[in-house]
Design a protein around this nucleic acid. Structure first.
Length: 410
RNA sequence: GCCUGGGUGGGGUAGCUGGUCAUCCUAUGGGACUGUGGAUCCUACGACUCGGGUUCGAAUCCCGACCCGGGCCCCA
């Protein structure tokens, strides 16, 4: 009986993998050039790592199980919490800032859709130990650069949770969370109803609605008038001017709340067309998780790119490598293996493993799109050479193996 | 979790107003062809997603499950 892959998972065939690797290496290149070091954390963690503060949203979607030692284990639904866990566990006394990047699979139990899978891949970056807008701006600029390198263009929205939250400081924390979620959804009706329900003061309500509607160049100025000259405002102001320095185009959007509850300061999201309902390809912000995991309070900033979503919309054709096929006859098969072994040091080389006849070996070379065929026959070997056949032109010439290698290097 | 469209060989399809061995194309393996590829011919391989129900009889009609696609929710 046939066993299908589990729902929401995918197999990646060679052509697809070539494309994925191509994009991955471009993102990787950006991260490395910006001075970030690659890290890898376990595929599964103790479930508390995610239940502690990731927000209600994520809880219902966690893949979890009890292991044989009766531990409650979860497949990671995201990578920020594990990175912070790793930091708290072994890197607290390292010189700051710490700059990391990762590329790994995550798991969420959700209804699969376009650009949404149960096993999906995130390419992310975290900078740990800086509270400054410089760090926030760097991270945003890097996100934009990565998307650019991947060949996708998106709309960058930047907000700051501290500003909205300052309005809500007199409201119960659990109500705050609910309000933020409604804000994020842009569900004004629901927000109004909820504010009615908890008897929110009129003054606050008015300011909240005006605040989350702020957009554009004067947004910061207007926000300052609404909530006063608080720290979050000046921090946000400083961040925006740095984004200008980086030459980024962005939209101020104080209505961004993010689904994960651990964000505390700057938040940003990048949206792209062509993905249906899943138009968010990148999201991130500043957070304070270290303390929650038993470490010292440490400000951090990071983001994650939805790698699969990028793959969905980016247009790349990885360059097909030049490849050749070594063909031989019954009486020269062993010599052909030796020659193929030598040629593989220089060029992608195939050799028949099906016991095919000479003609069919050439036919095979044709079907896989080999650029050349190296004929290893009695006649050629007697001359101490092989025949190099150009599959495009059909032309053929006698050369030594070294000459063949030299010819095919370019 | 909710709403919605769909599942026929590896890929693409016909059949789907119930009734001969389920159509065709393509791909793949082998051969015609014993030192030269894309063609042709032959041959092999290979499917009604699964389970119930209606019926003398189901790929076809009904129900359920599973899976895929689209939307909501949420998120990457």
């Amino acid at each position: 009986m046939e066993i299908p892959k589990p729902r929401g998972t995918r197999d990646f065939l060679p052509p697809e993998m070539a494309k994925r690797r191509c994009i991955e290496s471009r993102l990787r290149e950006v991260a490395v050039h910006w001075g970030y070091g690659e890290i890898k954390t376990p595929t599964f963690e103790h479930i508390e790592l995610f239940t502690l503060k990731s927000g209600e949203g994520i809880l219902g979607e966690i893949y979890n199980f009890k292991d044989k030692g009766d531990r409650e284990i979860a497949l990671r639904p995201e990578l920020t919490a594990p990175v912070v866990r790793m930091y708290v566990e072994e890197l607290q006394k390292s010189p700051k800032p710490l700059k990391f990047f990762y590329f790994d699979n995550c798991f969420r139990y959700e209804r699969p859709q376009k650009g949404r899978f149960r096993e999906f891949f995130q390419f992310g970056v975290e900078i740990i130990g800086s509270i400054r807008p410089e760090a926030e701006a760097e991270v945003i600029a890097m996100a934009v650069e990565m998307l650019k390198m991947a060949g996708v263009t998106g709309d960058l929205h930047v907000g700051h949770l501290g500003i909205v939250r300052s309005l809500l400081k007199d409201i119960l924390p659990e109500h705050q969370g609910k309000i933020m979620r409604l804000v994020d959804k842009k569900d004004e009706k629901g927000l109004e109803d909820f504010l009615d329900e908890i008897n929110a003061p009129d003054d606050m309500r008015g300011k909240l609605f005006r605040l989350i509607g702020l957009r554009g160049i004067n947004a910061v100025h207007e926000a300052r008038e609404l909530v006063g000259d608080i720290g979050a405002i000046s921090q946000f102001d400083a961040l925006l001017s740095l984004l200008d320095v980086y030459g980024l185009e962005y939209q101020v959007d104080l209505g961004i709340a993010r689904g994960l509850d651990y964000y505390t300061g700057m938040v940003f999201e990048i949206y792209c067309d062509g993905l249906g309902a899943q138009n968010q390809v990148c999201g991130g912000g500043s957070y304070r998780l270290a303390q929650l995991f038993g470490g010292e309070d440490t400000p951090s900033t990071g983001y994650a790119i939805g790698f699969d979503r990028i793959m969905e919309i980016c247009e790349v054709k990885p360059a097909a490598p030049v490849s050749i096929v070594v063909v031989s006859f019954e009486d020269t098969r062993k010599e052909a293996i030796v020659i193929a072994k030598r040629l593989r040091k220089h060029v992608v080389t195939y050799i028949d493993v099906m016991g095919r006849k000479f003609k069919d070996q050439i036919s095979y070379a044709n079907t896989i799109g080999a650029s050349h065929v190296v004929v290893v026959g009695k006649n050629e070997l007697d001359a101490g050479k092989v025949a190099l056949k150009d599959m495009k032109t059909g032309g053929q010439e006698l050369l030594t193996v070294e000459e063949v290698a030299g010819r095919l290097k370019e």
